[in-house]
């Protein structure tokens, strides 16, 4: 299974109404400090983020993906959007 598929499955607990994962790994292959994990940009919209600060939203996502960071996911750019935004 592709890592982007695994990430998609992990994030289903947030019941996203929008979920896009872009794999930017090719842009960063072999740069310093990168042990081989991928770079991803995640856009996710969910009611679970309503009323939460950006820091709390990011922490939610990091917790769900903890087993992949930093080995499989080296960097993750996050756009976390509440349902009313």
């Amino acid at each position: 299974m592709q890592l982007t598929e695994e990430i998609t499955i992990k994030l289903q607990t947030l019941k996203p109404t929008r979920l896009e994962i872009q794999d930017d790994s090719a842009l960063h292959a072999g740069h310093k400090g990168n042990g081989g994990g991928g770079h991803f940009t995640l856009t996710i919209k969910s009611q679970a983020f309503d009323g939460l600060s950006q820091v709390s939203r990011h922490r939610h996502i990091y917790e769900l993906l903890a087993e992949y960071i930093p080995s499989k996911i080296h960097a993750l750019s996050i756009h976390a959007i509440a349902s009313d935004e």
């Binding site: 950006q54 820091v55 990011h58 990091y62 996050i78």
Partner: peptide, 19 residues
């Protein structure tokens, strides 16, 4: 917070580069 960079202002964690 599992990633770097991390910004702190007056002792408070503000966030990473996206934030």
């Amino acid at each position: 917070w599992p990633t770097i960079p991390q910004l702190y202002i007056n002792g408070e964690f503000i966030g990473g580069s996206d934030i």
